[in-house]
Design a protein around this nucleic acid. Sequence first.
RNA 1: GCCCCCAUCGUCUAGCGGCCUAGGACACCGGCCUUUCACGCCGGCAGCACGGGUUCGAAUCCCGUUGGGGGUGCCA
Length: 433
Amino acid sequence: MSTSRLRFAPAPTGSLHIGSARTALFNWLYARHTGGELVLRIEDTNAELTRPELIDNIYRSLEWLQIDFDGAPVRQSERTDLYNDAVEQWLADDFAYVDEGAVRFRVPDRGTTAWEDLVRGTVVFENQHIEDFVVRRSDGTATFFTANAVDDLDLGITHVVRGEDMVNVTPKVIMLRRALGATDVPEFAHLPLIVNEQRKKLSKRRDDVALENYRDRGIVAPAMINYLALLGWGPPDDIEIRPVGEIVELFELGDVNPSSAMFDAKKLDAINGEYLRAMNPQEFCQALEPWIGQQTWSDSIDPTQLQRVAPLIQERTRVLSEGPPQLDFFFLNMPEIDQSAWDKVMLSDEAGLILEAASAVLGEINWEVDALHDALRSIGDTYQMKLGKAQAPVRIAVTGRSVGPPLFESMHALGREAVLARIGAAQEMLADE
RNA sequence: GCCCCCAUCGUCUAGCGGCCUAGGACACCGGCCUUUCACGCCGGCAGCACGGGUUCGAAUCCCGUUGGGGGUGCCA
């Protein structure tokens, strides 16, 4: 039985592009789905692209996504002899000729070059529209076309899965491959482009295309994988959020949609939120740690306290970078007051009365969530306020904001002393106004 | 200009000739729940670009129009 062999072939031009990541993913999905192999091929035929740090970045990003490869990576910069041999062979067989020092492939004037694309169906190019293209530069180095055709043949690649922006190179590499004596052609699958709101190809200049930026914002890898899989492909049963193993099982190149797909950061965030919520509390806390560690108040963190309060924000967090601002008041000596929230809530007549009542009763009660709940409710009752309104001044005093994790749980975690101190401070601020 | 590709709700998609008065998800808008926000639940808005065919029957097949995109380097 012939098994599939695919390759992901990025040019190391910086951080991994979101579109490249999707290409890598689809290659990986199909390789794993078919029980075949996936090789990583670094397309560094251009001297500037051989810098190690650029390549490291690709490795790191792919590792983060948990896209794994079979065998060692192939570096095109190390295979120049192969390309030279091919060029010499084309020259010898009169498939190519020297032009101002460069070598060009002789494209026939007549006939067509076509292939059956797994995503797009039949694609046909008339040879007369294809120019004689350079296969070896005048400096002696092989071009992309040469390296591409030689390596796909030499590495026994059975399926070429790449972006639609590569469609026009396909007839060229097919001609090159045939000129090398190959009678077969790999399967081609040209994936739809990922586009921005203006329906233009995601570009490094205008758009947020670096995979690492998403990681740094607090997108977790499984969510990224899941979202990327949904760009150009959809499960037949309409269940979008599912483990990558199931996606591997369901994935088929033939099911890939040929039309371009807009990158929707909101949907990515929504999916990420689902993944965050699905974590157990320890996992969530652990995922949060790198973001917490960057805060100015990270030195004053008590790990036990963090473990206790992190679950309070778990279902309120879509991306991990949203975590720290929701938790800072637990670890600061005094909360940072949101001025507009303060003005909205504290300028009413009742606010001072509620704080006064709270500071009195909170010194007496059992320090339990239920008791805190009851205390605030009865304070509200005496002023004929619903709990939602009655808790607002206390929330501002204790957390500095009008929104946040559940108040009574937060107060409980904070402790009586800190809570009373904050209420006291708020009363003083009110008095000063 | 030339070449290639694409066309289902705002967005991502399901649909591969009858199951479609087109399903799901995100977003948006209501409501419920409720200590804020969120989560959750319920409901709503909204789409087969247009015109011709083919067929008993078309979102699904064919042709054209329109619109959009990609490519046109001795970059990859």
